[in-house]
Design a protein around this nucleic acid. Structure first.
Length: 186
DNA sequence: GTGCAGATCCCCT
DNA sequence: GGGGATCTGCACG
């Protein structure tokens, strides 16, 4: 598992560094894994697009708590999104949204969870990967440096990182805080 | 390939 | 009461 220190850096740095790492999810002895290939950084007072921008609330409190934990939120009435709490020690809030992974193990169960066998459509979106890996609000606040059912470990070394504006937001679109790698070219 | 409507509900104002 | 860090299916081309 990645140690606490990994997440104890600026959110944008962690969003880049976590590309190529491996998410491990275990349910009743079934293991599902995937390589992180797309992320976004959401910070605090300098980031109007962040859930943490306004204030600490019941929903976003994980973003203000210890780094290395999961921040899971529910949106659009039917989707969960999975974030990892990460921030510079001097910042009060921040998290990295995991937007896409490349599935490795447990493909059968992932296909069942997603209701499709199309490999390209399994985990290529933030709500798709939570559905695929069975991540729900029950995972809210999980310590990803200690938990045995959901954690992150070292994976592959990315070669080139692509930067873009973040997806689906209307504020702070000038920030290039969406990061991607091309897993085929690693 | 692009574009749009609908699903559906919790949280914050 | 409004809107959202989304996905799917259907239309059209």
């Amino acid at each position: 598992m990645l140690p606490r220190e990994f997440y104890n850096k600026d959110t944008v740095i962690v969003a880049r560094n976590i590309l190529g790492k491996r998410i491990i999810r275990k349910i009743n002895g079934t293991m599902m894994t995937g390589i992180i290939i797309e992320t976004e950084a959401y910070r605090h007072t300098d980031d109007p697009a962040s859930h943490a921008f306004a204030n600490k609330t019941e929903r976003n409190k994980a973003m203000f708590e210890e780094v290395g934990h999961a921040y899971v939120y529910f949106t659009y009435g039917m989707h969960y999104c999975f974030n990892v709490v990460a921030r510079h020690p001097k910042s009060k809030a921040g998290a990295v949204l995991i937007r896409a992974v490349e599935p490795e193990k447990g493909i059968k169960r992932i296909q069942k969870n997603r209701g499709t066998t199309n490999l390209k459509n399994l985990t290529n979106g933030p709500a798709k990967l939570t559905q695929a890996l069975e991540i729900t609000k029950d995972c809210y606040g999980i310590d990803l440096t200690k938990d045995l059912k959901l954690y992150i470990e070292d994976g592959v070394k990315p070669r080139k990182i692509y930067e873009s504006p973040r997806i689906g937001i209307k504020k702070a679109t000038d920030k290039l805080w969406n990061f991607k790698i091309n897993v085929k070219k690693i």
